[in-house]
Simulated assay, not measured.
Amino acid sequence: MIQRLARQLAKEERDLRVLEAVIEHQPIGITRVATETGIDEHKARYSLRMLEDDGLIEPTPDGAVTAEGFETHATEINEGLDGLIERMESLKEIDL
């Protein structure tokens, strides 16, 4: 169970690192995302696709850019992460 959670967390961390690269270097292409983050190009491409599906970024001919209204999404992400941290902390209280 913990391994599955760790794999999912690693994927989400990768997506956030890719999103951070887009924010800092937009417009940015796949090769530069991979270079800036140290993530393999095929994984960077997948993360970009997931971020686009989530409405966080948009593709342009020059590379990925943050989507319109991104600031609202960023606030939701940060609040969601805070909530997840609280939930994870409460899981440690379960007596196994």
Score class of each variant (00 low, 15 high):
Met1Tyr: 02
Met1Ser: 04
Ile2Val: 09
Ile2Met: 10
Gln3Ser: 13
Gln3Met: 12
Arg4Ser: 14
Leu5His: 12
Leu5Ile: 13
Leu5Thr: 09
Leu5Met: 15
Leu5Ser: 13
Ala6His: 13
Ala6Gly: 09
Arg7Ala: 13
Gln8Ile: 14
Gln8Met: 14
Leu9Asp: 12
Leu9Met: 15
Leu9Gly: 08
Ala10Asp: 09
Lys11His: 04
Glu12Leu: 14
Glu12Met: 12
Glu13Phe: 11
Asp15Pro: 11
Leu16Thr: 08
Leu16Gly: 04
Val18Leu: 01
Val18Asn: 00
Leu19Lys: 03
Leu19Cys: 07
Leu19Val: 03
Glu20His: 02
Ala21Ile: 08
Ala21Gln: 00
Ala21Gly: 01
Val22Ala: 07
Val22Ile: 12
Ile23Thr: 00
Glu24Leu: 15
Glu24Asn: 13
Glu24Val: 12
Glu24Pro: 12
His25Glu: 07
His25Gly: 05
His25Lys: 10
Gln26Met: 08
Gln26Arg: 07
Pro27Ala: 02
Ile28Ser: 01
Gly29Ile: 10
Ile30Thr: 08
Thr31Met: 04
Val33Cys: 03
Val33His: 02
Ala34Trp: 05
Ala34Cys: 09
Ala34Arg: 08
Ala34Thr: 05
Thr35Pro: 04
Glu36Leu: 04
Glu36His: 02
Thr37Ser: 06
Thr37Ala: 03
Thr37Met: 05
Gly38Ser: 11
Ile39Gly: 06
Glu41Ser: 14
His42Gln: 06
His42Asp: 03
Lys43Trp: 05
Arg45Tyr: 06
Arg45Met: 07
Tyr46Thr: 03
Tyr46Arg: 13
Tyr46Asp: 10
Tyr46Ile: 00
Ser47Pro: 07
Leu48Glu: 05
Arg49Ile: 04
Arg49Gly: 08
Arg49Ala: 10
Arg49Gln: 06
Leu51Gln: 01
Asp53Gln: 07
Asp53Ala: 11
Asp54Pro: 07
Gly55Asp: 06
Gly55Lys: 05
Gly55Trp: 00
Leu56His: 01
Leu56Phe: 04
Ile57Pro: 11
Pro59Ala: 02
Pro59Ser: 03
Thr60Gly: 14
Thr60Val: 15
Thr60Gln: 15
Thr60Phe: 14
Thr60Ser: 15
Thr60Glu: 14
Thr60Lys: 15
Pro61Tyr: 02
Asp62Ser: 15
Asp62Pro: 14
Asp62Ile: 12
Ala64Ile: 06
Ala64Met: 06
Val65Tyr: 06
Val65Gly: 04
Thr66Phe: 00
Glu68Lys: 11
Glu68Asp: 15
Gly69Ser: 12
Gly69Glu: 10
Gly69Trp: 09
Gly69Phe: 10
Phe70Arg: 08
Phe70Ser: 09
Glu71Trp: 08
Thr72Tyr: 03
Thr72Leu: 07
Ala74Thr: 01
Ala74Gly: 03
Thr75Phe: 11
Glu76Phe: 01
Glu76Thr: 00
Glu76Gly: 00
Asn78Ser: 13
Glu79Asp: 10
Gly80Ile: 01
Gly80Pro: 04
Leu81Asp: 10
Leu81Asn: 12
Leu81Ala: 13
Asp82Ser: 14
Asp82Lys: 13
Asp82Pro: 05
Asp82Gln: 13
Gly83Ile: 01
Gly83Phe: 05
Ile85Val: 15
Ile85Gly: 09
Glu86Cys: 11
Glu86Ile: 10
Glu86Asp: 15
Arg87Cys: 07
Met88Val: 13
Met88Phe: 12
Glu89Gly: 06
Glu89Tyr: 07
Ser90Asn: 09
Ser90Pro: 08
Leu91Phe: 09
Lys92Leu: 01
Glu93Phe: 08
Glu93Val: 08
Ile94Asp: 05
Ile94Met: 04
